[in-house]
């Protein structure tokens, strides 16, 4: 690389030949290398992690039926149902019927913790085009998987209920995050993302098989 031919200290006191001046080719190379380094620096800045990517959740993925093992818990999806409306019975036997302009999607999930009790935050249905549908607020969280503690030693089963346009069903995945602390937010919490296996045919079956009324709640 260098055209310098230094002599080693102590070997001689005779001045050794110094370099020939850098060639034009080498200078051009240095300029190109400099531009390349500057461009690389800009490019690295451009791909620097966004706020959400740095502090967001670490995601473990899987498919419907799989047991997806994340760092603090494992989760699985055991079934997906469609419904045109949901009938909710509360503890006082009051009945409400929730409707939607789209379709209710009820995802049956189970989970177990590895060491410490965990609690799920609001689940998200992630459509194939990247749109994120939060779990519907028409069903109280106490009736869904976000209510019970997920504990070690056994599987806790529950549902997550979404409200989506029919067009968002194909290729949809469910995302199950953990709740975060109230005051001290923890970064990079584990979450699982499970593909619901809704290809075109399965989507059609889900829509065709959607129940008119899906009952929830009430005394068990």
């Amino acid at each position: 690389m260098s055209t310098v031919t230094p002599s080693r200290p102590g070997t001689t006191t005779t001045p050794r030949p110094a370099s020939r001046p850098p060639s034009r080719l080498r200078r051009a190379g240095a300029v190109i290398a400099g531009i390349a380094l500057a461009a690389a620096a800009v490019a690295v800045q451009a791909v620097a992690l966004e706020h959400e990517d740095r502090l967001g959740n670490l995601t473990w993925t899987g498919r419907i039926g799989d047991e997806v093992v994340a760092s603090r818990f494992s989760a699985r999806v055991t079934g997906v149902h469609g419904a045109k409306s949901i009938q909710i019975t509360d503890v006082t036997d009051k009945v409400e019927k929730a409707t939607t302009s789209g379709l209710f999607v009820i995802v049956e999930v189970g989970a177990t913790a590895h060491r410490e009790p965990q609690k799920f935050g609001p689940p998200v249905l992630l459509a194939e085009d990247g749109k994120r549908y939060a779990a519907t607020d028409k069903v109280k969280p106490s009736l869904t998987i976000t209510h019970p503690y997920i504990q070690p030693g056994w599987w806790t089963e529950g549902v997550a209920v979404f409200e989506v346009p029919v067009a968002a069903l194909t290729g949809a995945r469910i995302v199950l995050p953990l709740t975060n602390g109230f005051f001290i937010k923890e970064a990079n919490l584990p979450e699982v993302e499970i593909d619901l296996g809704l290809d075109d045919a399965a989507t059609q079956r889900l829509i065709a098989g959607a129940e008119d009324v899906y009952p929830m709640g009430g005394k068990k």
Binding site: S85, I88, E96, K97, A98, T99, T100, S101, G102, A127, K131, R132, Y133, A134, T136, D137, K138, V139, E163, V164, P165, A167, A168
Partner: peptide, 13 residues
């Protein structure tokens, strides 16, 4: 829609 909601889901009116 039967039960009061405060959510606006993407692509829905």
């Amino acid at each position: 829609e039967g039960v009061p909601s405060r959510q606006l889901h993407p692509g829905m009116t």
